[in-house]
Design a binder for these strands. Structure first.
Lengths: 149, 149
DNA sequence: GTAAGCCTTCGAGTGCGCGCGAAGTCAAGC
DNA sequence: GCTTGACTTCGCGCGCACTCGAAGGCTTAC
């Protein structure tokens, strides 16, 4: 999981699942100060990889570049900014949770529609296929079906 | 929930929670054939509102305009396209579920980070605040904490 | 020495889903 | 008849996060 020796931008990109272009972009945007080798090449070691992995979690949940910059600015400030970082993360967490709920609601509506197609295709009153269950669906059974079509 | 009389674009937009601009855009893009009043004004009745509501569920789960067009093309084709519509929706559903899972994984990582800040701020080995639980979180306790920072 | 290959910077382009302002039209009220 | 106001079409602009191409430099291999 961790590298013993600093990685080139290509290797780092491969590990993180992004393109080298993206890593350079993040650098340009001032998210990280990536150490350079003698020839000026970026060297990604554990610290950078760890930070980037977390930044990618933030990006994956829709935080914009401005948010990432703000967070990394606090990180550079030092340990005493921990409360502010926590506040920033909690605020983001709440936004994400809201989006997650509405995403689940939308998905639920789509599944209801699929179920209706199943009912009509099955042509015997009951769904032909029981719409195989998924772990993600657990919470949705509490919400009303909301069959709006 | 439903209108007895066709709505103006403003009223429809308000009900659907989008802007009139967006409704005209959808019209231009050929998603719906919205009936017009004598003066050429769009009139949204139950059929249109219902269709749009479902389209907004699709948009809300990240389906692009091309997907919406494809779906609506099938709807216009008639009832015999039901199997294709179902297939389209099922494919989309699976994409969304995948995104949902990765979103939850990202969110989980962020929450782990918050918990670590809590631990350090609390300064007594245990989280000062038990990180209040949410219904969304139910499935996540099965996944490993993945504290990567 | 020189060719290969990966790196560098800089700046412009892309794709998507609107957002918005301009300019014109139409129906209703006074 | 004239204003008012909501509607129409048209088409450019935008914000975001990349994405890519051009032009050049450094190191290593032969």
């Amino acid at each position: 999981m961790s590298a013993l020796v600093p990685l080139s931008i290509q290797e780092a990109a491969a590990r993180l699942g992004v393109s080298p272009h993206t890593l350079r972009y993040y650098d340009r945007e001032g998210l990280l100060d990536v150490p350079r080798a003698s020839g000026g090449e970026r060297r990604y070691s554990d610290r950078e990889l760890t930070l980037l992995r977390f930044l990618l979690h933030l990006r994956g949940t829709g935080m914009g570049m401005a948010g990432l910059r703000a967070y990394m600015a606090l990180v550079r400030e030092g340990e005493h900014t921990a409360p502010e970082r926590r506040a920033l993360l909690v605020a983001h967490e709440q936004e994400v949770e809201a989006r997650l709920l509405s995403l689940q609601a939308d998905l639920s509506a789509i599944r209801a529609k699929i179920a209706r197609y199943d009912a009509h295709l099955g042509c015997d009153g009951a769904p032909a296929r029981p719409v195989l269950d998924s772990p993600v669906l657990a919470a949705q059974r509490t919400a009303p079906p909301e069959v709006n079509a």
